[in-house]
């Protein structure tokens, strides 16, 4: 009973915080308190969070090293644009198409490759990601290498916020469910899980498909925010960028992924004026963090309100 009350209280607080955050930004956007530059960075932030949290499900919680996340993002981006821009469907149809297409791609790629382990899986997913890019590059219907220009901007703050919250909520709830425990047991020890009667392939594919689906959602948001998509945007370097966020935050920590996404977005924007040395600083930071904090900023722990309590307590 006590527990119930507590979780209800937590739930209400969460809802309040989220609504407050949403209203605050909505107010700032509609009253032009937030200029377009900050709006663009805020959108990149949300998209990065979606990508990082979804990849974290595959790499962090399931323990399957995937290097092809940008490929799923590309599938989602193209599927949604084909629906909205070329077939004149409303945005929601585009979003659904993006999720379905990316999930399907995740299924097709996941079923054969997830039998592979470690580095072999990594290179196979990287290969598939690149194949997706090359194929898109050769389809003239979607503009070939030049991509699609002049996409109507449909990604507004409510859509973006909704999509981000949906991604985080679904993945967090999945992790905390019995499915999640099965998924984590696969990461910890495949053979032991199999002995316990867990169908490891099934859970690996499940995590892979869900991760891919949300990458597709992020792709749809990206395409309808930045007006232009081209295959070159979704190359393996993009997959690396997402992986960096995930590892920086801590494999298997959703809050870590969110914090790292914010950190990278802000860092990139802050270093804009020093274009020449920005990448040098960025790479150095990456190396140093990995040397001194190889488990990422958060390890596999989550940032909770309890932790704040602890810090307060210590200060007292």
């Amino acid at each position: 009973m006590q527990e119930m009350k507590k979780s209800w209280g937590k739930f209400i607080i969460e809802v309040l915080v989220l609504t407050g955050l949403f209203m605050l930004v909505q107010y700032a956007v509609s009253n032009e308190l937030l200029n377009s530059y900050y709006q663009i960075n805020l959108s990149s932030l949300c998209i990065n969070i979606m990508l990082a949290v979804s990849l974290n499900l595959i790499n962090g919680f399931t323990g399957q090293l995937s290097l092809g996340h940008a490929g799923f993002m590309a599938v989602g981006a193209y599927a949604s644009v084909v629906m909205t821009n070329m077939m004149g469907q409303p945005f929601i149809v585009g979003i659904i198409a993006a999720c379905l297409a990316a999930a399907l791609a995740g299924f097709i790629i996941g079923v054969p490759t997830l039998r592979l382990k470690g580095d072999y899986l990594a290179i196979a997913t990287l290969g598939f990601g690149e194949i997706i890019r090359v194929v898109l590059q050769n389809i003239d219907y979607v503009g070939g290498p030049a991509g699609i220009v002049g996409i109507t901007q449909l990604t507004t703050w409510p859509w973006l916020f909704g999509a981000t919250v949906l991604t985080v909520l679904v993945i967090v709830n999945l992790i905390n469910s019995s499915y999640g425990r099965a998924i984590i047991s696969v990461r910890e020890d495949e053979i032991a899980s199999e002995l316990m009667g867990i169908n490891i392939t099934r859970y690996k594919v499940l995590a892979f498909v869900i991760g891919a689906m949300f990458a597709g959602l992020a792709g749809a948001m990206y395409a309808h925010y930045f007006y232009i998509i081209k295959p070159g945007t979704f190359n393996f370097m993009k997959s690396f960028d997402i992986l960096v966020i995930v590892v920086l935050g801590g494999l298997g920590s959703t809050t870590g992924a969110i914090i790292a996404a914010a950190l990278i977005t802000v860092l990139t924007a802050a270093l804009q004026k020093w274009a020449a040395i920005r990448m040098i600083l960025y790479s150095l930071a990456l190396i140093l963090i990995m040397i001194y904090r190889p488990l990422g900023l958060m390890g596999n722990k989550e940032l909770t309100t309890k932790m704040f309590g602890k810090i307060w307590g210590e200060k007292k």
Binding site: L65, I277, M279, I280, S283, M290, P294, L295
Partner: peptide, 24 residues
């Protein structure tokens, strides 16, 4: 002695560092 993925990210970091220091 850390996880393989941490080493992998470090390798990506070294790769970016070499590329952009040479560009600079």
């Amino acid at each position: 002695h850390s996880s393989r993925i941490a080493a992998l990210i470090t390798a990506i970091g070294v790769s970016l560092f070499l590329e952009y220091i040479m560009i600079y």
